[in-house]
Simulated assay, not measured.
Amino acid sequence: MEALLTGERVRLTLLDDHDIDHMTKWYNKTDYARHLDALPAKPKRAEDLRKWRDEAHEHDSHFLFAIKEADQFIGFVELDGILWTQQNAWLTIGIGDPDMYGKGYGSEAMELLIQFAFHELNLHRLQLTVFEYNNAARRLYEKLGFVHEGSHREFILRDGQAYDMLLYGLLRKDWNQKTQG
Rank of each mutant, 00 (worst) to 15 (best):
I20H: 12
G104V: 11
S61F: 09
S151Q: 13
W90D: 09
H148G: 12
T92D: 10
W90I: 07
M100W: 03
E154H: 10
D80M: 10
Y101Q: 10
N135Y: 02
I95M: 13
L140K: 01
F155V: 01
L91R: 05
K42D: 10
D97L: 03
T13M: 07
L112M: 13
H124N: 13
R138L: 05
T85N: 11
A162I: 08
A41N: 07
E154P: 11
N122P: 00
L113D: 02
L83E: 10
L112P: 12
L4Q: 15
Q115F: 10
T129M: 01
I67V: 14
E149R: 08
N88L: 03
L166S: 01
R9N: 15
K29V: 14
K103W: 02
Q86T: 11
H59F: 05
A66V: 06
M100H: 12
H119I: 00
E132R: 01
L12D: 04
E2Q: 14
R9Y: 10
Y105S: 01
N88Q: 12
G169A: 12
S107I: 06
R172M: 00
Q115I: 00
L140G: 07
Y163K: 00
K25D: 14
Q72A: 03
G102H: 13
R9H: 15
Q87F: 06
D60N: 14
L167K: 09
L112Y: 11
I114F: 06
D97A: 03
I74F: 06
T179K: 09
Y32S: 06
E78S: 14
F118Y: 06
H59Y: 05
I20R: 05
A56H: 15
R158W: 13
R139C: 00
H119D: 03
V130A: 11
N28I: 02
F146Y: 14
Q115R: 08
A38H: 04
F116S: 02
A56G: 12
T85F: 02
I114S: 04
L64A: 11
H124K: 00
L36A: 05
M100E: 09
M165Y: 02
Q180R: 05
Q115V: 04
A38S: 11
I114L: 03
F131E: 11
K42H: 15
G106L: 12
R125I: 05
R172V: 01
K68R: 15
E142W: 01
W52C: 02
M1T: 15
L140C: 04
L170D: 04
A3L: 10
R50E: 08
G7Y: 03
G96H: 13
G75A: 02
H152V: 03
L5K: 08
G7E: 04
L83Y: 09
I156P: 02
N28L: 08
L14A: 14
T24V: 15
Q161C: 05
G150C: 03
Q177P: 08
F73D: 06
L15A: 10
D19P: 09
L91I: 14
H18S: 13
A46G: 11
Y101A: 09
D71S: 14
E108C: 03
D54G: 05
N134R: 07
A162F: 15
A162R: 11
E142L: 03
K44H: 14
K25V: 12
Y168E: 03
G169L: 00
N134Q: 10
V130H: 05
D37W: 10
Q177W: 00
L112C: 01
E47P: 03
K51D: 15
I93N: 02
T24K: 14
Q161N: 12
D17S: 14
N88K: 06
K51S: 15
E78D: 07
